[in-house]
């Protein structure tokens, strides 16, 4: 089984070769959110930059589809989980940059709502990881709506403390799921 580190190196080298300009654009265009333009133009530009980046990141994650189809990953035992982690690191960091700056700086939402949305993102991420472990679609199907619902209701009816506790719980569950995934990966 190819290790996570080697998979990450491969994914980085691959995307650097096939889409270095797009990656550069995604990694640098968040500066727009911090510019000193006033008025509607700022919101127009920022919203466009955010959504264009979302679309670019989405299509970039599919950029190695042909390696799946030509069985390269199968041939060298590169697991789905390792690829998912590697792509999450490569694209997740610029995505979080855009996500956080857009919400906090451009729209100016309060930290509590940001924390809620951020926690929901983590829930979706860990839900996807559960699916890789072949546990069952049912568990993932319950896990994501249950946690998301809990987070949203906590935001609407409870205070800061409940939200922080819940978000902490989400992060803990993520850590647990990741360590479990890595363990299973190692055993393979």
């Amino acid at each position: 089984m190819a290790s996570l580190l080697n998979t990450l190196k491969f994914i980085m080298a691959y995307f650097r070769v096939v889409s270095k300009y797009t990656l550069f654009l995604i990694s640098t265009s968040w500066i727009i959110y911090l510019t000193d333009i006033k008025g509607d133009l700022y919101y127009f530009l920022s919203a466009n930059v955010f959504f264009v980046n979302l679309v670019l990141i989405y299509f970039l994650t599919k950029g190695d589809k042909y390696l799946e189809k030509n069985r390269f990953y199968l041939l060298f035992n590169i697991s789905d989980v390792n690829r998912f982690f590697s792509k999450s690191i490569l694209f997740g960091i610029p995505f979080l940059m855009h996500f956080s700056l857009f919400l906090l700086v451009v729209t100016g939402i309060d930290y509590l709502l940001y924390l809620t949305l951020f926690s929901i993102l983590i829930v979706i991420f860990s839900g996807r990881l559960i699916l890789f472990n072949n546990v069952s679609k049912l568990i993932s199907g319950i896990y994501i709506p249950a946690f998301t619902g809990l987070l949203l209701s906590a935001y609407f009816v409870s205070g800061v403390l409940t939200m922080i506790i819940l978000s902490g719980l989400v992060v803990l569950s993520l850590v647990f799921i990741i360590s479990r995934s890595l363990q299973l990966n190692k055993n393979d």
């Binding site: 190819a2 491969f10 070769v17 096939v18 030509n70 069985r71 041939l75 590169i78």
Partner: peptide
């Protein structure tokens, strides 16, 4: 099976790492 976008040496380097 190849990674078409790599040079032979880049490709062989990763094959070595995976193997």
């Amino acid at each position: 099976v190849f990674v078409d976008e790599f040079t032979p040496s880049q490709y062989l380097r990763f094959v070595c790492k995976f193997q």
